[in-house]
Design a protein around this nucleic acid. Structure first.
Lengths: 205, 205, 205, 205
DNA sequence: CATGAATGAGAATTCATTCAT
DNA sequence: GATGAATGAATTCTCATTCAT
């Protein structure tokens, strides 16, 4: 769409923007998250990068490879972000609130379970495994923070694993839009606060 | 391909067991839930029904129509089930536990948000709207139950809407499998109990 | 190229020419023999048939399937032709001459060994097997004729199997063109006669 | 990927063992003969040589050029081999037997006619011509030997040209494998002997 | 001498959909 | 009510070739 004139052969080195491979990965991540594995075609990715399909294949041998790499990089980024926030010395609840805000802003669909349902048939076992492992690590940083808080008596004992998953699951509420297109709370900040509050207090007070 | 095992005596006219249209809808629902919109082809549905693609088109003008109908029927069924359980006279927590058990058993991917991400581009606004409305109603029965419990003082005041969504969101934890393929709790019953407990008590007890 | 206007859907039944599937098979056989497996694309076949690629795929699920069927039908036809000629009551040499003439006219590349080298990687073992079996049968009719002639004392004892293969191998000489584009003998009839003579008498007379 | 086993001491400068161009040609010849023109990609050649595609293009401007060169070198090698064997002072039949053995061992598909069918469309007229001329010369050495033998009365008069082609054609029988994967004669030596015998005596003794 | 990065033109295959029967 | 035959538009992936370094 943008750069119209794309000559054959190696392009003159332009110290310019990101190297092609990184650009492809970024664009792909975004598209996959927005639309899902099947819907996004390699051509879509290529066009949005201003390169040809063949260039995408130059870097990623298959669509499944591209997807796998995209998911892994994304989850690593998320984990780092969470880790950063969690390592601050504040009370747990405050740190959770920050994570919630950060994620709701990122509009990232963390509903990974459902998200991975369809690609499942197209990824190799090894690819699936790699993704799963990275996902696991993402949960682990949260889990560890909960464990630490339990030890310090900041929260009561319980399954830190369940706690981590519950937190992530509840964040998906932020994606919900009703029939009128309205989210449950009008502002992201309020959404984050309400979710974390509910998560903290539970239904039964 | 042929029916293998024919019982003795005159078959009860068979009446085709289920009229073709209903069979198509059932099969489609199952396939869509299992594999996602894109992955399931009209031919897949047809073959699993033992009819031809053209027959499917005889009943459903487009794939989007079939999907829409399938989703709506499914959500109506779910709503009825929830409604049934909720109308019993037991304490709320017990009723929620029953719903949780029922849903975890049904293996239904209720991660509707993520699930609907890819079809979004293929459904008409009207279709999307219809689905959304049915979904909304599904949440409403839960919401109503929470409101009633608040009024009775069974639980403290709060956003019943958030409560309904949080409950459904937390049920998706049941779908999670770790890198080793293991769910968070080994049995569905334990899973349901732990989820409902967490939902009820919150992290901070 | 020919029929320009090709409406969607099932075409109005025209008791016309050959049914589509047969046409596809015929055209494919011709193209494969002329140009080889790789070179011929499904689109080439489709275009030459005046249908779309999708139509070809309607009848043959893969290119390998089409090729397999084409080869088998061709070899069956050849076998029948040979069989017919061989069952006449004439002296063996005369019958061989007739076969030679018929084949040189058909311009068929009977160099099956070389011809099958490249498809080999693309055909399934089963397909390869099927083709091989049909080929085998083609040789067998020749072999049987040689055996009969040996019994009658028309020719001396020897390996009928080798004799059959030698005959077919020698027919490929007819395909040869020198650097100037000239075949070894100017007319097909002379070619056939010379080949059969050589086959019959050997080099050492 | 790395060289695994490095012997002690200074390597004998290695001189790259074979200059790159020769290596490319060798590898290409082998691959083309094994798999055919279309099937072998420039990348296959490059990879098997441990260089990049661009390097192959550094030496050969097009795939057709590489193929042409490969075929020509191969036919020159074959001609030399045949020539060597033929120039010995033994009886013709013995020399032919040696050629047969040598070729059956080389597993070379000399079915050149069929083999050249597909590249035909991709080679320039000039390239085709070059190949044809080299092929012609290959046949000529055989032809000359037959002519000499006719003059000496070792064999009877006849078309030496046909004789040469018949001999080469019959050697292809050695490539045949039946449906069970078995060649016509179990050992190469027996194969060579039987073929030469048949070639010498003909069918009708 | 050799390579890394990129392209353009196909190739096989899939699939929702259409239409005459 | 159901089907068989056909299409058109995409989709994944391949490959010979080009060109700056």
């Amino acid at each position: 769409m943008q750069r119209e004139y794309r000559p054959l052969g190696r392009p003159r080195h332009d110290k310019q923007a990101k190297p092609t491979k990184a650009m492809i990965l970024d664009v792909a991540t975004q598209l996959f998250l927005e639309q899902g594995y099947q819907v996004v075609s390699m051509d879509d990715v290529a066009k949005k990068c201003g390169v040809t399909k063949a260039t995408v294949y130059y870097y990623y041998a298959t669509k499944a490879d591209l997807f796998t790499d995209a998911m892994i990089q994304m989850m690593i980024r998320i984990r780092k972000r969470i880790d950063e926030i969690l390592s601050a010395g504040k009370p747990l609840k405050e740190r959770l609130l920050e994570i919630a805000k950060a994620h709701l802003e990122a509009t990232i669909n963390i509903d990974l379970n459902a998200f991975m349902k369809e690609p499942q048939n197209f990824l190799s076992d090894e690819q699936l495994q790699q993704i799963k492992e990275t996902e696991e690590k993402m949960y682990e940083v949260l889990e560890q923070a909960l464990k630490d808080a339990m030890e310090k008596g900041e929260i009561s004992q319980g399954s830190s694993r369940l706690g981590a998953h519950a937190f992530v699951a509840m964040l998906t509420i932020g994606n919900y839009k009703d029939a009128g297109g309205q989210p449950i709370f009008p502002s992201l900040d309020e959404m984050a606060e309400q979710i974390v509050n509910f998560y903290w207090n539970g239904l039964g007070n």
